[in-house]
């Protein structure tokens, strides 16, 4: 019997779940459905913010300083109340979602692109390039992530773009390590050896064999990294190092709220609630994705 290596090596896809499988999985988890609905609603709100808000988020209404929200006797004019400078909290929260989501997306992308490239390169050329890259990642990992973002922001200055750079930098080692580990795992498999013997070039191996199998764990990593990015961005805002006032970023809103814990607690718990529910929803989705795509990493 003659053995022939097929033209295109069939790669067993870890994410072989079709849409119906996804639906089956979700049906049994009301939490996941809630999370997805929330995130979609948030995305839509962020997108259509100008049409959904009653007021300009930075406009100060001098006669309405620290107005109570609806459930504490407020008016429909300012359903979530106002902050200490008379700005409508609801509008600020809605616009704040734009910042959080934008920072999250861009930071993750900014980490994924170089991260995947570096990870692949270290897997394919482990001796010098790989060693160097991994040691560099070790260095980045030696610094607590928050401190690293603080350091980057200290050097580059505060603001939106620098926040994104800082957060992307902190996510980078995770992406590199994950890509490298998955790539090494794939390279060790027999079908790759078979492809190599059949004369497949490095690029071909890369794109057809290795990369598709790296995608599922990367998706999980990206989702969880997204929630970390939101937390970190808000942390920077809270420390006064991220988006600067009057930008309605959720963390920045919390920073100025500290003084009003007793007098106007809604200024404290509303932005925080926004952050937490978003992060919670994304983490739930991330967990669900992990169960689906990468059963080895199951938390359940």
């Amino acid at each position: 019997m003659a053995y022939s290596i097929p033209e295109s090596a069939t790669v067993e896809n870890a994410a072989d779940s079709s849409l119906s499988d996804v639906w089956q999985h979700l049906r049994h988890s009301p939490a996941s459905i809630l999370a997805i609905t929330y995130v979609i609603a948030l995305l839509l709100t962020a997108l259509f913010a100008p049409w959904l808000t009653l007021h300009n988020p930075v406009e100060q209404f001098r006669e309405h300083l620290l107005d109570a929200p609806l459930w504490r006797g407020g008016t429909l004019d300012f359903p979530f109340g106002t902050d200490d400078l008379g700005r409508d909290l609801l509008s600020r929260l809605i616009y704040g979602s734009r910042y959080s989501l934008f920072i999250g997306f861009t930071a993750i992308l900014a980490a994924l692109l170089p991260g995947v490239v570096l990870g692949m390169l270290s897997a394919f050329f482990p001796r010098f390039l790989g060693f160097g890259v991994m040691r560099a990642m070790d260095v980045l990992l030696a610094l607590p992530s928050l401190l690293l973002t603080v350091a980057v922001v200290a050097v580059l200055g505060s603001g939106l773009i620098n926040t994104i750079v800082a957060i992307a930098l902190v996510q980078l080692p995770g992406v590199v390590r994950l890509t490298r580990a998955t790539a090494i795992g794939e390279l060790a498999k027999e079908y790759v050896a078979a492809s190599r013997i059949a004369g497949a070039g490095v690029l071909r191996l890369l794109f057809i064999a290795v990369l598709p199998n790296c995608i599922p764990p990367l998706i999980v990593q990206a989702t969880l990294g997204f929630s970390v990015a939101i937390l970190d961005a808000a942390a920077l805002g809270f420390l006064g190092l991220g988006a600067q006032p009057p930008t309605p970023e959720w963390g920045t809103m919390l920073a100025s709220a500290r003084d009003f814990i007793e007098s106007a607690s809604w200024v404290v718990y509303l932005p925080g609630l926004a952050i937490m529910s978003t992060v919670l929803a994304i983490n739930l989705i991330g967990d669900g994705l992990r169960d689906l795509l990468d059963p080895k990493l199951r938390v359940r």
């Binding site: 808000a234 942390a235 963390g251 919390l254 814990i261």
Partner: peptide
Amino acid sequence: YSMPIYWWGLL
């Protein structure tokens, strides 16, 4: 682990 520390502290 979804809770922002700074907010949890304030709460």
